[in-house]
Nucleic acid binder design. Structure first.
Lengths: 116, 116
DNA sequence: TTAGAATAATTCGGTTCCGAAACAACAACT
DNA sequence: AGTTGTTGTTTCGGAACCGAATTATTCTAA
C-alpha cells in the first residue's frame, strides 16, 4: 500500500509543486490557510473554528482570520450552527472546489512527470 | 515513467504534507522561501538573486529578503562572485540540507501511507 | 434563574511582508 | 576616462499577520 519515493524524488516533487504554486497562485495562500482549506474539503464535517484550531495546533484567532480571508476570496463560507449557536460551521463552495481541483492537477502532473 | 495519482489521492497527499509542515515546522517558511530553498539545493549552481527572481517570477527584493531570513536561520549562505563582483552566489549549508531531508521524509512517509 | 463555562470574534501593540522606486557598487564598451 | 547597463540592496508607506487579552453571545448545570 502507498507509494515508494526516494528522498531525491520526494524533494523534487516538493520543488516542482511549490514552483507551480508560486507561479500560478494569485491567491497566495499561506501554509496554514491551505491546510485549513484542504481539511475542510477532505475531512468529514462538521468543521468548527475550535476543531480546526485543535487540528492544526494554532490559536482560534488564527483560524478566524484565515476564514475571513478565504471567505472574501469565496473559497469557503461560514454558517451558524442552529443546534448550538455558539458554533460556526465552515462549509465548502464551488469556487473552493475548483481551486483545489487545480491544485490537485498540479500535483498529479508533477507526480506523473517524475523520473522514477 | 512517473506516478499515477487520482485527484483524490493528490489532494490527500497535499493535505497530509501540509498538516505535518504546519505542525512540525518551527521555521515557518513561506511558500516562496521554501521554493527558493528547494531550487538552491536541487538545481545546478550557480544561483544568483537575479536568476532566482526570474525562475520564481518574483521581484529581486523578494529574493533578497528571503535570503536574509534564511541566512539568519542558517539554511543557506551568500558569497560574492569573484568573477563578477556584482553577483551574489547562493550556497548550501549543512543545516539547510538537514532541514530539507526532514521535509523529504515527511513527503516520503505520507506518500507511503496513501491508500492507492 | 443565575453563575459559570464555552465559543467565536475583536482589539491591541508589535512584527513582518510586499511592490515600487531609489541607491551603491561593479562591469562593459566606446 | 566616461557613459551606460547590470546587479543586489535598501528605503518607504501601506497592508497583513501574529499572540495575548478582552468582549459578546450562547449554552449548561446547579
Amino acid at each position: 500500500m502507498g507509494i515508494e519515493l526516494s528522498l531525491s524524488n520526494a524533494l523534487w516533487l516538493l520543488h516542482d509543486i511549490s514552483l507551480d504554486i508560486v507561479h500560478d497562485d494569485d491567491k497566495d495562500l499561506s501554509p496554514r490557510q491551505l491546510t485549513i482549506l484542504l481539511t475542510v474539503y477532505l475531512e468529514t464535517p462538521p468543521h468548527t473554528v475550535r476543531g480546526l484550531a485543535e487540528k492544526l495546533q494554532v490559536s482560534k484567532p488564527v483560524i478566524t482570520r484565515a476564514l475571513d480571508a478565504m471567505s472574501v476570496a469565496g473559497l469557503l463560507k461560514r454558517r451558524r450552527d442552529n443546534e448550538d449557536k455558539r458554533n460556526v460551521l465552515v462549509q465548502r463552495t464551488v469556487a473552493g472546489a475548483l481551486y483545489l481541483e487545480g491544485l490537485a492537477e498540479i500535483v498529479q502532473n508533477r507526480a506523473a512527470d517524475l523520473r522514477i
